[in-house]
Each structure stands twice: as C-alpha cells, then as structure tokens.
C-alpha cells in the first residue's frame, strides 16, 4: 500500500492551516464587530427587583409597545429577563397578579393606569414591579 503522496498531503495541509489561521483572524476581528455579552448588563438592572420579588412561581411581563423594527430587540429583552429570573417563570402577559415591567424609555405618565395596572415600585432604569388589581 502506498503512503499518501507528499504533494497531495502537503497541499491539503497547507490549505487547512491557512483556513485555521483565517478562522482565528476572523474570530479576533469579530471582537470589533460584535458587542460584548449584553446579558450581564441587561440583567444587572433587575438585581434589586429580584431581591424584592414577592412569593410566586409565575409572573407577568410587560414592555413598551414596539414596531416590527424593534421586534428582535424586544424579544431579546424578554428572553434575557426570563433567563435572568429562572427558575421563576416570566410570562409575556398582563394576566397575573404581579408583573415585571421592562422599559427602555420611561413610559408616559398614566400609561400603566390606562392598562389597568398599578405600580408597586419603580426601581429606576425602566424596571418596574406592577400589580394587576384584577387578581387581588
């Protein structure tokens, strides 16, 4: 049986090494393009609320109304909140006694009242603990 011919093996090896080097460079460059892990910063806003959360297994969730352009960002904020609060369930619904409010911009005055919700506590930086009086 013949050994791999040096010419072919050499060719494959050089190309593979070039690919490996390129991949490494791509990863280093990706550091500039992509933001740092946004989860810690997002979830740090909830530290105080997490400590003050009432007893319960499932909480509601509300954020500002958003158009289709902000859909992905809003989805990220909801998923990140759900991840940060696990093992408590955070359901994207107002049909719960307690709700977590997650806002990028401050909601207009009377916004929650219009939705029939009461602010239990404003933690600042767009984070609220809300109550739905319907479930009182």
């Amino acid at each position: 049986m013949s050994l791999p011919r040096p010419k072919a093996a050499f060719l494959v090896t050089v190309c593979s090494l070039a690919c490996a080097g390129f991949s490494l460079l791509w990863t280093i460059r990706a550091f500039r393009w992509n933001p740092v892990d946004p989860l810690p910063e997002h979830n740090a806003r909830f530290a105080e609320l997490r400590a003050a959360l009432p007893q319960g297994q499932v909480f509601g969730y509300i954020d500002e109304p958003h158009g289709s352009a902000e859909k992905e960002a809003a989805k990220f904020r909801y998923y990140a909140t759900a991840y940060g609060f696990a093992p408590v369930f955070i359901e994207r619904s107002v049909e719960h006694r307690y709700l977590i409010g997650n806002f990028v911009t401050s909601p207009s005055p009377g916004y929650f009242e219009k939705l029939g919700l009461r602010v239990q506590r404003d933690f600042g930086r767009g984070v609220f603990l809300l109550e739905n009086p319907k479930f009182h």
Partner: peptide, 12 residues
Amino acid sequence: FAVLALWRLWGD
C-alpha cells in the same frame, strides 16, 4: 478540493 487531491494524487 481535498477529495480531488486524495482521489487523484493520493495513493492508488
């Protein structure tokens, strides 16, 4: 490319 190299040039 490697397949071609293996097939054509590499061993019998």
